[in-house]
């Protein structure tokens, strides 16, 4: 078959689909510049005052800080635990690897609300309710599947003989993992870590059950703000979030070419 550029029809349909998917994003971004004190499209006048309002509001700053700490913390812990678990599963170092994989991936399938309620009951029972650590543990539970999935996929893509070569050349098990296995699965792990980060960053259904009054995260704050009456500062903080996410994704793609692993 000769290589053809896609026809006009297909291109237009594809463009329309992309536009349709992006409409909410565009709407939110436009609304954040409106001078009115309610959300409106198209924006009435242009102003940056809502951005100023967000960036000078302690409530928002604290929520952003909480969210970032949670996302970075839970992704780091998930990376360590997820990679270790995936390696053990992949290498059949533990029995029941199929069952273990399903167990680790379960939070992807179980509805978030159910996980939230279940964790709330559990932490109430053990008397840890309301602590920041509870939130961190919960976020590890919901982010670890993304790490496990990308780690297992990356591991199955490397030649086993490469690890054996390192062993024969004098590297012990840990050195082999550090110098050979880990660098080879890194692009996949970056992709997994990004998913994990974003998942933690945007999570409402689990967090809302567990967050104490001082641990409000950004999505929870947005959620409650919207309930209490919307002004464009919600749109402004959303716009900031969208831009930050886009920058991180572009940078990661540039560094690692991770799109192959998504």
């Amino acid at each position: 078959m000769n290589e053809q550029r896609p026809g006009l029809t297909i291109s237009s349909v594809a463009l329309l689909v992309v536009l349709f998917l992006q409409i909410p994003v565009i709407v939110v971004m436009l609304a954040s510049f409106s001078e009115t004190s309610y959300l409106t499209i198209p924006p009435q006048g242009w102003t940056l005052k809502w951005f100023e309002a967000v960036l000078t509001d302690r409530t928002y700053i604290d929520a952003i800080k909480n969210s970032l700490i949670l996302a970075v913390g839970s992704t780091t812990i998930s990376l360590v635990l997820g990679v270790a678990a995936s390696y053990a599963i992949f290498r059949k170092l533990v029995p029941g690897s199929e069952a273990l994989t399903s167990l680790l991936m379960a939070p992807l399938i179980i509805p978030s609300v159910v996980i939230g309620v279940a964790l709330l009951q559990y932490f109430t029972l053990v008397g840890m309710r309301g602590s920041f650590w509870v939130l961190l543990i919960a976020h590890v539970v919901i982010t670890v599947p993304y790490i496990v999935r990308s780690a297992l996929a990356s591991l199955s893509g490397i030649d086993l003989a490469v690890e054996e070569a390192a062993r024969v050349l004098g590297a012990n098990g840990f050195t082999t993992f550090r110098l050979v296995t880990l660098p080879l699965i890194k692009p996949g792990l970056v992709a997994g870590a990004l998913f994990s980060f974003v998942t933690s960053m945007e999570n409402v259904p689990v967090t809302i059950f567990l967050a104490g009054p001082r641990d409000t995260t950004l999505p929870i704050l947005i959620f409650t703000s919207v309930e209490m009456g919307v002004n464009p500062s919600v749109a402004a903080v959303s716009t900031l979030l969208i831009i930050a996410t886009a920058i991180v994704l572009l940078a990661a793609e540039r560094w690692t070419g991770f799109h192959r692993f998504v």
Binding site: A161, E164, A165, V180, L184
Partner: peptide, 12 residues
């Protein structure tokens, strides 16, 4: 010293 059928060079 071991030379593999697949060479098993470290690709990175």
């Amino acid at each position: 010293g071991l030379v593999f059928q697949s060479y098993a060079l470290f690709p990175h």
